[in-house]
């Protein structure tokens, strides 16, 4: 069986004024359809760069990103990104923000009424239908992120890319959104890649956790499968042996073997 998404020996280096800094080195990873994979690592290890490479927003220096055996090197709606700071357009309402995506992606395949239904369906999915006529400035940070997720889902992507989607949220809102993402993942079975630096979040949500070594020239250190049955409930898991063991494995990787060295250049 060939992999759904394959990261094939990817290198990425940035050249800045004669100096070439190597960010990612020899990244190899395959992801199956419907899988939820988290990428975790210390800040500056290049995990966001890796996500941008998969999204096509930056180009690989060597190697290739293969989606269903086809190389992707430019951004497109089949790899939708949920940005850390939501990136909603502030002059559009919630509905219009999603409509911008839907009318571009489905402008020729769906009728106006179908598009409207599709927008409302996605807003319902993140429980934001009540705020359809609000502007981003009028809703809370968690709600904006929900709309960001709805916009990405509305593109009906093959792969959903989440770039530290809950990083800017408080702990309680974050927990709510994690539950929402779990719920959506179980309903739609969307292949998802999430960047995070939160160990609990990674274990709770993922089927597999990809642990990155520290930069420069970061690579995949270990990959941990999380053998927890779904649906997962955070309160029950907080004392679950498997959960704690997975958590410990990630913590050991991050804080014992690949400790973050301040100002490591």
């Amino acid at each position: 069986m060939t992999a759904y998404l394959k990261l094939d020996h990817i290198d990425k280096s940035f050249a800045r004024g004669g100096q070439v800094s190597e960010v990612l080195k020899d990244i190899r990873l395959t992801i199956d359809k419907g899988e939820f994979v988290s990428i975790i690592g210390h800040s500056g290890c290049g995990k966001s760069t890796l996500l941008n490479l998969i999204a096509g927003l930056t180009k690989v220096s060597a190697g290739a990103v293969l989606l269903e055996d086809k190389e992707v090197d430019s951004p497109g709606p089949e790899r939708a990104v949920v940005f850390q700071n939501h990136s909603l357009l502030p002059w559009l309402t919630v509905y219009e923000n999603i409509n911008l995506a839907v009318s571009k992606v489905f402008g020729s395949t769906k009728t106006r009424a179908e598009r409207h239904d599709w927008i409302m369906r996605n807003l319902d999915l993140v429980q934001m239908a009540h705020a359809r006529d609000k502007r981003p400035a009028e809703i809370s940070g968690g709600m904006k992120q929900r709309v960001g997720i709805a916009r990405a889902l509305a593109m009906e992507p093959k792969i959903l890319l989440l770039d530290e989607p809950f990083g800017a949220l408080d702990a309680l809102t974050r927990a709510h959104l994690q539950d929402a993402v779990m719920d959506i993942h179980s309903r739609l079975g969307s292949t998802t890649i999430m960047i995070t630096h939160d160990v609990d979040e990674a274990v709770l949500l993922s089927d597999r956790i990809v642990m990155m070594t520290n930069g420069p020239a970061a690579t995949v250190g270990e990959v941990l499968a999380v053998p927890l049955a779904r649906p997962r409930r955070r309160v029950e898991l907080s004392s679950d042996r498997t959960f704690l063991r997975c958590r410990e494995a990630v913590l050991k990787f991050l804080y014992e073997r690949h400790r973050f060295v301040e100002a490591a250049e």
Binding site: S87, A101, M155
Partner: peptide
């Protein structure tokens, strides 16, 4: 903001759509 440009790139907006839907309102 770079994020707006990224949104436009992911949606594959063409030059004219980008001008009307992102550039003019963002720079208004």
């Amino acid at each position: 903001p770079e994020d707006y440009r990224n949104v436009a790139r992911i949606l594959r907006l063409n030059q004219i759509e980008f001008f009307i839907k992102i550039m003019v309102p963002a720079a208004a």
